[in-house]
Amino acid sequence: MTTPIPPFPLPRVLTYPTAPGPPPLLIAQGAEGRLYKTTHLHPSRPCALKYRPPKPYRHPILDARLTKARIAAEAKVLDRCRREGVSVPAVYALDAAAGWLMMEWIEGVPVRAGINTWLGERGEEGEGEEGPIVELMGRMGDAVGRLHGTGIVHGDLTTSNMMLRPVVGSTTTDARRRAVEGEVVVIDFGLATQSSSDEDRAVDLYVLERAFASTHPRAERLFGHLLAAYGRTSKKAPGVLRKLEEVRLRGRKKSMLG
C-alpha cells in the first residue's frame, strides 16, 4: 500500500556543473514544491532552492499559468518584506517560467518542531512554567503583525511555515527552553498576496489559528498570547482582531451548509 517515494529528477538548474560544492540535497517535499539545499555563487554560501515541478494532475495550461505567477509573486513579496525590515529569506535568483527561486538558507527548525519539543510528553496542559512558550507566541504574533504592516498577507500561515533562527552564542543549557528560543523567520510565501484589508488579514490569522489548533491541540489555549502580541503591532491591528471574530463565525456557519 505504501511505496517509498521515488527519487525525483533534479530541476534543470541544478544539473549544470558550475561551482564545485556539496551536491544538492532534497530537504522537503511540501505541497508547494520541493526544497533543495544547495549553494549560490560560492560553495560556502548555502542557499535554498524552491522548485515547483509540473503537477501531473493539473491541466498543463493551468499548471504553467499558476507556476509562473506564483514564483514571480513570491519573489516580489520576499523582496518587499526584506526592504521593509521583516525577517524573511533574501532572494538570490529566480526563473519564473522554469519554476524555481533561489533564497537565503535559514538555519534552525520550524516553530512546529520547537513547540512540540517544548510540549514533549506532558499530558495535561497548564502544568509547570510557561514563560518561554508564551514569549515565543508573542514573537510569532509580532512577526505576523509586522508582515501585515508591509501590506502583505501570507495566505498559508502555519507553524511549519515559520522558522526559529538559533540565537548565535546562546547560553541556554536546558534543551526544552532552547527549543523555543530564537528569531521567528516567516518562510514559504507561495500563496502570499498584497493586501491591506482587515478582512484578508483576519483570514490570514484565522488560517493560522485553525492550523495551530489542529497541529498543537494541547497548546491551543496559548494562541491568545499570539493575538495579543499581534494587536500591539500597529494601530490597525485591533480592528483586524475584531474582524477575526466575524471570520470565525462565518467560517463556522459556512462550513455546514452551502
Binding site: V203, R210, A211, A213, S214, P217, R250, G251, K254, S255, M256, L257, G258
Partner: peptide, 20 residues
C-alpha cells in the same frame, strides 16, 4: 453541502481546510 479536508487526531475528526 460540504467541502472539508479532514484528518483524525486525538479522538476527533479535525477540519484542516474547508470551503469559505
Amino acid at each position: 453541502g460540504n467541502t472539508q479536508v479532514i484528518a483524525y487526531a486525538e479522538q476527533r475528526y479535525r477540519i484542516f481546510g474547508e470551503a469559505l
